[in-house]
């Protein structure tokens, strides 16, 4: 694996099991991920989709499960369904740091000239802040649905592609 392009980290007052559940349970994820959630059986080699949980025909992101080790590590290949060749790789790492949970999101292995790079910068920090807020206070910050929310991005896909 080439060196990652992005490493995002947040510390959450929670347990690794709850953080894992927050990532893989689409109904829970929808609360902080602007209505989106990951749908998959999470077996190695299985497909996964990031969908609008109210209408699963709206697919924002797709890929395959590379590794799934609850509640420590989930690695996915990551692509926009309209451009499947532009695939990258996302790893969620969950660990303990004192009495806090440390969650790392590592996004890398981009294809040369990938436009995913542009799409995701700005997206993950929003998702992680919202996740932290929901787990710690029970309140999510529903900023993502305002912006449309796409493949790890805070902007609608058509806007992210323009220019």
């Amino acid at each position: 694996m080439s060196k990652p392009e992005f490493v995002y980290t947040t510390y959450i007052k929670s347990t690794p099991e709850k953080v894992w559940e927050a990532i893989v349970n689409p109904e829970f994820a929808a609360q902080y991920w602007g209505g989106l959630g990951i749908v998959s059986d999470l077996k190695k080699g299985s497909k996964w989709r990031l969908v609008d949980t109210k209408d699963e025909s709206i697919v924002k992101c797709i890929g395959e499960v590379v590794e799934s080790t609850p509640p420590e590590r989930l690695t996915l290949t990551w692509a926009d369904p309209s451009n499947e060749a532009d695939v990258s790789r996302v790893t969620f790492e969950i660990g303990l740091s004192g009495d806090l949970v440390r969650l790392d999101v590592i996004h890398g292995d981009f294809k040369p000239g990938s436009d995913m790079l542009e799409k995701i910068s700005g997206g993950w920090p929003l998702v992680l802040s919202s996740l932290k807020s929901l787990l710690e206070t029970g309140k999510s910050i529903d900023v993502l649905s305002v912006k449309g929310g796409s493949c790890g991005s805070s902007q609608p896909l058509k806007e992210a592609k323009a220019g």
Partner: peptide, 18 residues
């Protein structure tokens, strides 16, 4: 070393609402 803007986003969200 990687830039991690998540803590800045946490602060942003605290004062700037939906």
């Amino acid at each position: 070393h990687y830039l991690n803007p998540v803590p800045i986003n946490d602060i942003y969200m605290r004062w700037i609402g939906k």
